[in-house]
């Protein structure tokens, strides 16, 4: 059961990574990247690394996404 959860998370992780690469809209890519970070955060948590998971959630899904969105808003639109 536990390993099945890992497999599901890894599959979703790869799918979101592909979706980021394929997204045409930059804002959509930034949001998908946040989803990717959250998947990775869950995976770290499930593999027993809560410290890394917290970093991934705060830096990967939080600040990085916000900075991406600021840059996109200031450049392409």
């Amino acid at each position: 059961m536990s390993e099945l959860f890992d497999v599901v998370l890894l599959t979703l992780l790869i799918l979101t990574a592909l979706a980021v690469a394929r997204a045409r809209d930059l804002a959509a890519a930034a949001i998908l990247f946040a989803a990717y970070s959250l998947m990775l955060c869950l995976l770290w948590l499930h593999r027993g690394a809560p410290d890394v998971a917290l970093t991934e959630a705060a830096v990967g899904a939080g600040v990085t996404t916000l900075l991406f969105l600021v840059v996109i808003a200031r450049t392409s639109r």
Partner: peptide, 20 residues
């Protein structure tokens, strides 16, 4: 679990949120 960098990201995100 926690620490300086994680807290820094939360506080920085808070400032950015207020800026938004």
């Amino acid at each position: 679990p926690g620490g300086g960098l994680q807290g820094a990201a939360i506080l920085g995100g808070l400032v950015i949120l207020n800026g938004f």
